[in-house]
């Protein structure tokens, strides 16, 4: 039977992402983050902690680099090449980029991380054995490992009451990372299905996008042409499946981080605008 399956679907099984891959995508969730209006307030990160039951690890473990912030706001000061370096830090909200050709996926020995038909890079906690190879092969270093059983000390009574019942609390020894609030995606999809209609743009959004006071983070279905995120990608002439965005208009500020590594990230960043002298 399996041999039959193998032979009849051989050409399908041999397709890489350049030829569209094994299956068609139902959705392709993507993001656009405008760094120009990001104030670095960390509301997104906080919202992420609340939504996704992220463990609070305490100052010592944070210092050791064992924190669990799926979404971190990176700060860069050293911008001496700019005209006004004294303008302070520039901020970069960094979460899993849900790469289309994710480097973390093929290295997992047990296939605990894989690509969903939604274009998400999913992590199966139950399957993870904690070899941590995925994190080593992630150029963004946005995968977080449960070095301890954080749940034991992270939410002392009655704080455990604030945990989100839609998702799990992870135990020691598994890898976790930003899921694009997959629980929200799933419930919105289910709701649309129950009501027998298509999922609409803006019907739901991720916790970080919801919390962002300046609306710097835009989330949506990249495949849906009318979605806000698809329009933004289009406006800034950012295309997928390339290693370099070819454009000469400086007004088009969009770029994807480390796209030269051919990993095809799903997050477009809009460059910060600095006035010239």
């Amino acid at each position: 039977m399996s041999l039959d399956n193998l032979l009849s679907n051989w050409s399908q099984y041999r397709k890489g992402h350049e030829e569209g891959g094994f299956h068609d995508y139902e959705h392709r969730w993507g993001m656009a983050i405008d760094l120009d209006i990001c104030t670095g307030c960390n509301a997104c990160s906080t919202a992420c902690y609340a939504e996704n039951n992220l463990a609070v690890v305490g100052p010592e473990r944070f210092e050791k680099g064992q924190a669990m912030h799926w979404l971190r706001v990176e700060r860069y000061w050293d911008q001496s090449e700019l005209d006004h370096p004294e303008q302070g830090a520039s901020f970069l909200p960094m979460m899993c980029q849900q790469c289309n050709a994710a480097t973390c996926e093929p290295v997992c020995p047990v296939a605990a991380t894989y690509h969903t038909p939604d274009g998400l890079n999913a992590q199966i906690y139950n399957r993870c054995i904690g070899s941590r190879y995925c994190s080593n092969n992630c150029p963004f270093r946005v995968r977080y490992f449960n070095f301890y059983s954080y749940y034991e000390s992270s939410w002392p009574e009655p704080l455990n009451m604030q945990l989100n019942p839609d998702i799990t609390v992870r135990d020691k020894g598994v890898m976790e990372k930003c899921t694009y609030c997959v629980q929200r995606i799933r419930s919105a999809k289910n709701k649309a299905k129950m009501e027998d209609r298509k999922l609409e743009d803006g019907e739901f959004t991720t916790a970080c996008a919801q919390a962002c006071p300046t609306n710097a983070i835009v989330f949506g279905d990249w495949q849906d042409e009318n979605s806000q995120v698809a329009k933004l990608w289009k406006k800034h002439e950012v295309t997928r499946a390339v290693t370099k965005q070819n454009k000469d208009n400086p007004e088009k500020r969009g770029y994807r981080i480390f796209e030269e590594l051919n990993i095809d990230p799903s997050v477009m960043y809009l460059e910060r605008v600095r006035e010239k002298v």
Binding site: P106, P109, I129
Partner: peptide, 30 residues
């Protein structure tokens, strides 16, 4: 030793399982 969940180490081996799970043959660890 370096696995986070040592007790599941046998998942790396290609054994026939009821749940149709296999290791990921692309991974250099396999």
């Amino acid at each position: 030793i370096h696995l986070g969940r040592v007790w599941n180490m046998y998942w790396v081996l290609p054994y026939v399982s009821d749940r149709g799970l296999w290791p990921n043959f692309r991974s250099p660890l396999v």
